[in-house]
Every structure is written in structure tokens, then in C-alpha cells.
Design a binder for these strands. Structure first.
Lengths: 170, 170
DNA sequence: CATTTTGTACAATTATAATTGAACCTTATG
DNA sequence: CATAAGGTTCAATTATAATTGTACAAAATG
């Protein structure tokens, strides 16, 4: 089952992939991540690494890294297929779960880095040195607090409802 | 008043600028935009293009483009100073206004592009061709709708309160 | 336990995006 | 109306990030 001639992706699949490539790039992710997610999203069945490589014509390294990243933000779920050594995945279709993953893995750490940076600034200088900038620094503190409060809120707003994929008269 | 020896930026200013450089990069903006905004943010008085160039030691082109972008998202406000031909600006300190600018200038257009892309996909193919992907496409539609609703919500959440810079016993 | 399969790590390469600097408008000024 | 100052534009350069491809590690197979 190794030397299989892979079914090439269809025009529609290509367009769905293009949609996710665009989406990925617009949030600053490599295009290959968008391609990979798009491929999984459009696929009827779980896919393994080598199928991604063959269908998208990208390198092993790209495919491996892309899958790892997508796993890390919960955009791909591992599926166990008996009798196949390869790891298989399917696309997560709940916007909320993916957004949560992105928030927790990428956005929140970044935000915290900024908060730390500011904290160390406040510790590093004498109050007299800070005085002229005091109100400005206070203002950034406020921004950080707002941002921190916003994140869980976005998550809640994106809602748990999205994933309810009840097979409607399929 | 041209050949002035510019006061170099202080250590604290440098750190505030570093904070915004980090912030800019974390949302996918060029580091120079962060530098420029940081400089304005830390400044006590309005600044003009050539002061940005001198203090940050960046090129005219970068400074010009950076200022233009920051204006476009409402992160800089123009200030009129009588007797000086140069355009002066101050940093906007309301998180909400800047977030609104970013949303309107960068995020929303991108979102709409995705929606258009999807719409054209649906028009381009026969229902029979789309059938197998129908529920998936419907799902993306849902994502788009949620995202569209989320934007004004984020804006409202960031609130109008931020800018209330009442000079507290200064 | 040698061999194959699956997946990862990472230096080298390639592609993309940011920055520079010079040419060029536009408006003010004497 | 010639000159200078403020600002923009954009092709060329430089810096950054993504992608490849090879070498490697881990696990299964016979």
C-alpha cells in the first residue's frame, strides 16, 4: 500500500485549500499551515503524513512541522486506525476549540511577555526616573489588563455550539 | 532650527519603545512601526518626521511609511503647530480607537476577502459537485458569520473608557 | 538483530517582507 | 520664479522567515 498513485486534489478542494491559505496568512501563519489544514478540512477521511506530502507536493519537513503546529493548537485531532502504523488526523471543525488553541499557544504567551517586560521596567528604575512617564505606563498596564480579560471572552463568544455536527439527514 | 543636535532617547524611552516593537511584531507588523509608535507614545510633545528619523536612526522612507500607517489606524493624531511647516503628531492612547483602526483597516477587509472567495466558490460549481462538501462549506460560513459578529464586539469590549486621561492631581 | 517504515531535527537554501536611499513631487519663501 | 524644505514613492538592497532535503532517532517487522 506504499506505492499507491495518489488521487490528485480536485478543483474544489484546491479552492478550499486556497481559502485556508489566505486565512492562515492573514493571521501571520505560514502558507503551508493553511494548505495542510485546508487539505484535512476538505478530506472525507483521516490522512497521514505521506498523503499530505503527496497531495500538496510539499516537503516532509514542512508537512511534519505543519502537522505538529496544527496539533498544538487543536486544529487537528489524532485518529487511531487499526493496522496502520502511520499517525492519522482529521480537522477539528469547532472554531472555538481552534481559537482557544491559538490563544493559549500563541497569543497569551506573547501578551504575558509584554506584561513581564513592563514589570521589569518598573522595577529597574527609580520612581523619580519613572515619574514623567508614570501616567503613560499606567495606561499600558490598563491595556494589558483589558487584553487579558478579552481573551477568555472571545473564546466564550465563539461559543461551544460550532462543533455540533449532527449528521443532518445524511 | 534645522541643524539642532537631537537629544538622544533615554534608557527608559528605549525600553518603552522595545515594548511596542515586541507588541507590533506579535501582531505581524514591521518592527519599525512599533519603534515609531513607541517613540511618540513616550514623548512629552508632538514630533515631526525628521525628529523620528534622528531619534530612531531610521531612513526617511521607513519613517514616512510608518507614520502613514499609524495615521491610517488612528494610532497617531495630527497636531497643528503654528509657525512650523512640518506635520506633527501625538500618539493616540485609547486602546479602543487603535483597535478599531486595526480592525477596520486590516482585519475586516481580510475577512471580507475570505467571504468573497467562498461565495465565488459556491457560485462556480454545480450543486452536485458541491454536495459532498456541502456541510463543510456551511461550517465555514458559520465561522465567517461569527467572526463578523465578533469584531464590533471586541471594539465595544475594549471600551470608550480607556482614553479618559483626566489630569489626576498633576 | 538487521531492515524497513514513520516521523523529527536542523543546517542550507529559497522566498518573502522590511528597510534604505535617491529621485521626485508639492508647497512655501524670499 | 528660483531655491529650499517637507514629504512621498519606489526600485534596489538587506534582513527575516519559510521551505527543503538530508541525516538521524524511534519503533515495528520478519
Amino acid at each position: 500500500m506504499k506505492g499507491d498513485v495518489q488521487t490528485p486534489i480536485s478543483d474544489i478542494e484546491r479552492e478550499i485549500i486556497a481559502f485556508f491559505v489566505n486565512a492562515a496568512q492573514s493571521i501571520g501563519l505560514p502558507k503551508s499551515y493553511g494548505e495542510i489544514y485546508g487539505l484535512f478540512f476538505a478530506s472525507e477521511h483521516p490522512l497521514a503524513l505521506d498523503e499530505v506530502i503527496n497531495k500538496l507536493q510539499i516537503s516532509k519537513g514542512s508537512a511534519s512541522q505543519g502537522i505538529r503546529f496544527l496539533k498544538s493548537i487543536n486544529a487537528l485531532n489524532a485518529i487511531y486506525l487499526p493496522g496502520d502504523r502511520r499517525d492519522h488526523y482529521v480537522a477539528e471543525t469547532s472554531l472555538r476549540l481552534i481559537a482557544d488553541g491559538l490563544i493559549n499557544q500563541k497569543i497569551a504567551p506573547q501578551l504575558r511577555e509584554g506584561i513581564e517586560r513592563l514589570k521589569s521596567l518598573k522595577n529597574q528604575y527609580e520612581p523619580s526616573e519613572l515619574a514623567p512617564l508614570k501616567s503613560k505606563i499606567k495606561n499600558i498596564d490598563l491595556w494589558n489588563k483589558k487584553a487579558e480579560l478579552l481573551l477568555p471572552f472571545v473564546s466564550k463568544y465563539l461559543g461551544p455550539k460550532a462543533s455540533k455536527n449532527k449528521s443532518k439527514k445524511l
